[in-house]
């Protein structure tokens, strides 16, 4: 126990660097994935059939492909097709490609949950397409989609650990380095698991607060 603590103190600055990398990969990856999910969802709702079919095919492929295989493909195979990305960029692209179909599905389900009558009512009082989306659909859909999106955000944050395989210097990469120096695999990995747990639990609690904030209108009525 004492030895374990000594390791975390000695390598503290490196662990902190790794954690910072993990956090910003998570934030950037989540933003890109969410943006891609909105585009995917818009494409899936497009009147143009080939586009819808393409989105379906893509979603189906991603649902069957392990993220690790996707990562290998983007970092080690894509360069032979001219797509040459740094490890961090390849990591962000992998997280985006992998998580966007799942997020798009969460958004789709949330929008579908809003009664069509509300949209019609909005139109009836003279709201345009944009006003309906901004004032009626999105605020409610965001609140409905949030629990599923938070689950996916946490999944994405955890999957940043896999990026260590292509030399992204996030928390797990640093941990492998530390284990190779200290030869205390169980203690160090268990300690790092605790670090992940604390950060992800904090993230989840923060997101729950946001969810409560977004759904405050429901409580006010009931």
């Amino acid at each position: 126990m004492h030895d374990t603590l000594a390791v975390f103190i000695e390598y503290g600055p490196q662990f902190l660097d790794g954690l910072a990398e993990t956090i910003w990969l998570t934030l950037l990856g989540a933003l890109c994935a969410l943006a891609a999910a909105v585009v995917l969802q818009a494409a899936a709702a497009s009147p143009w059939r080939p586009l819808r079919a393409l989105v379906r095919l893509y979603t189906e492929l991603i649902l069957g492909l392990p993220i690790l295989v996707l990562l290998y493909g983007i970092y080690f195979v894509a360069p032979s097709f001219g797509l040459r990305l740094s490890a961090v960029a390849a990591g962000i692209l992998t997280l985006t490609l992998y998580y966007s179909p799942y997020m798009a599905e969460a958004i789709r389900a949330a929008i579908a949950a809003i009664p069509a009558g509300q949209v019609e009512a909005g139109n009836a009082i003279g709201f345009g397409w944009f006003a309906v989306a901004r004032r009626i659909v999105l605020p409610q859909a965001a609140a409905i989609a949030l629990p599923a999106l938070v689950g996916l955000l946490i999944g994405l944050a955890k999957d940043t650990a896999i990026l260590s395989i292509i030399s992204v210097k996030e928390l797990s990469y640093i941990t492998k380095q530390v284990v190779s120096r200290t030869f205390m695999p169980f203690e160090v990995w268990a300690g790092v698991a605790l670090i992940y747990w604390v950060c992800l639990t904090a993230l989840e609690v923060a997101m729950r607060r946001l969810e409560r904030h977004l759904t405050r209108h429901r409580r006010a009525v009931s």
Binding site: I154, D159, T160, I162, S172, T175, W189, A193, Y196, W197
Partner: peptide, 8 residues
């Protein structure tokens, strides 16, 4: 839910 499978 709060720790990566890789670490687990």
């Amino acid at each position: 839910r709060g720790t990566p499978l890789y670490v687990q």
